[in-house]
C-alpha cells in the first residue's frame, strides 16, 4: 500500500518535471536554432548599413531603427494611458457591475487578433485621421494592442499593495490622491514595469498591426518624421522569407534578422529588469 503511494508520488512528480523541462528545452532549441543560423551574418555592417542588391546583401539598419521607433512610440502612448486607467479601475472604481464589465472588456481587448487591430488602425489612423502609412499610425495601433496588458498588470500590481498601508495613510489625514502618489504607486511601480516589459516584447515582434499602418517593403532612407513610413524587423523578416527578390540568397539575412529581433527583446527585458530592481530598492521594504 505504501509503496504504491510512493510510486504514484514518484510518477506524478516526474511527469511534471519532464513537462516543464520540455517547455524550457523547446525555448532553448529555438534560441539555438536561430543563433546557429543567424549569428554568422551578424557583423557591424549588417547592423549599420542599408539593404543592398535586392536585400540579399548589406544590412538591416533601417528595420532596426524602425522597430526601435515603434517600440518607443507605442509605449509613449500606451504606458501612461494604461497605467492611469489601471489606477482608476483599481483605486477609484467601487465594486459594481460596471467595474466587472470594464474588466471583462479589457480582457476581451487582449484577446482580439492582432490583424484586427491592424485593420482598425488602418481605418482610423491611416485613413480617417489622414496620418497615412506612418510611424505615428503604427505606434498608435501597436499601443492599442499593448493597452490591455498594461492595464491588467497595473491593476494586479496595485492589488498587491497591502490595504493597511492605505488606511494608515488616510488615518494621518492624507487624501486619496496623496495616498496613491506617495504610498501605493511607488510600491506598485516595479511590478507595473513588468507590464511594460511584457508589452514591449510583444510590440517589437508583432507583424500584423504594422502591415497596413507603417511597414514598408523597402525604403532607401531612414524615416525623417513620425509621419514617414518605416521598415521594421518582423515585417522585414517576413519579406525576406516570402517575397524577396532572391529568397534563397536572402535566407541567411532572414536568420540574421530573426537573431537581432530576439536580441533586442532580450536586451529590453534585461534593461527593464534592471530598472525594476532599481525602483524596487528605492522603496524601503
Amino acid at each position: 500500500m505504501k509503496s504504491k503511494k510512493r510510486f504514484y508520488e514518484f510518477l506524478v512528480f516526474n511527469i511534471f518535471r519532464i513537462i516543464s523541462f520540455l517547455v524550457v528545452g523547446l525555448l532553448f532549441v529555438i534560441l539555438f536554432f536561430i543563433s546557429i543560423r543567424g549569428i554568422g551574418v551578424i557583423n557591424w555592417e549588417f547592423l549599420t548599413s542599408m539593404p543592398k542588391e535586392g536585400m540579399t546583401q548589406g544590412g538591416i539598419f533601417p528595420a532596426i531603427v524602425g522597430t526601435f521607433c515603434l517600440m518607443v512610440g507605442s509605449m509613449l502612448f500606451a504606458f501612461p494611458i494604461g497605467v492611469l486607467s489601471g489606477i482608476y479601475t483599481n483605486e477609484y472604481l467601487k465594486e459594481s457591475r460596471f467595474k466587472s464589465f470594464l474588466r471583462s472588456m479589457t480582457n476581451n481587448l487582449a484577446g482580439i487578433p492582432s490583424i484586427v487591430f491592424g485593420l482598425f488602425g488602418m481605418a482610423l489612423f491611416v485613413n480617417k485621421l489622414h496620418f497615412g502609412d506612418s510611424l505615428i499610425a503604427g505606434s498608435l495601433t501597436l499601443g492599442l494592442l499593448a493597452l490591455p496588458v498594461i492595464i491588467r498588470t497595473t491593476e494586479e500590481a496595485l492589488k498587491t499593495v497591502d490595504m493597511s498601508l492605505r488606511t494608515g495613510s488616510y488615518a494621518l489625514g492624507a487624501t486619496k490622491l496623496q495616498t496613491i502618489r506617495r504610498v501605493v504607486f511607488p510600491i506598485a511601480f516595479p511590478n507595473i514595469l513588468t507590464g511594460l516589459i511584457l508589452s514591449m516584447g510583444r510590440v517589437s515582434g508583432e507583424t500584423a498591426p504594422i502591415l497596413f499602418t507603417v511597414a514598408a517593403y523597402f525604403l532607401p532612407k531612414l524615416p525623417q518624421s513620425i509621419f514617414d513610413q518605416a521598415m521594421a524587423l518582423p515585417y522585414h523578416l517576413y519579406v525576406l522569407t516570402t517575397s524577396g527578390t532572391n529568397m534563397e540568397e536572402s535566407r541567411p539575412m532572414a536568420y540574421g534578422t530573426a537573431f537581432v529581433l530576439i536580441m533586442i527583446v532580450l536586451i529590453f527585458n534585461l534593461l527593464a529588469n534592471w530598472l525594476r530592481r532599481y525602483f524596487g530598492k528605492k522603496v524601503k521594504m
Binding site: D162, S164, L165, T167, G168, S169, L172, G173, A174, T175, Q178, R182, V183, P186, I187, V283, K284, M285
Partner: peptide, 18 residues
C-alpha cells in the same frame, strides 16, 4: 503598518501630506 520608507520619512509623512 509602517510605510516602506525610511524611519524619518514615516514620521514626516503626516506633516508632508498636510
Amino acid at each position: 503598518n509602517p510605510f516602506p520608507k525610511s524611519i524619518f520619512e514615516n514620521v514626516a509623512y503626516g506633516l508632508r501630506v498636510n
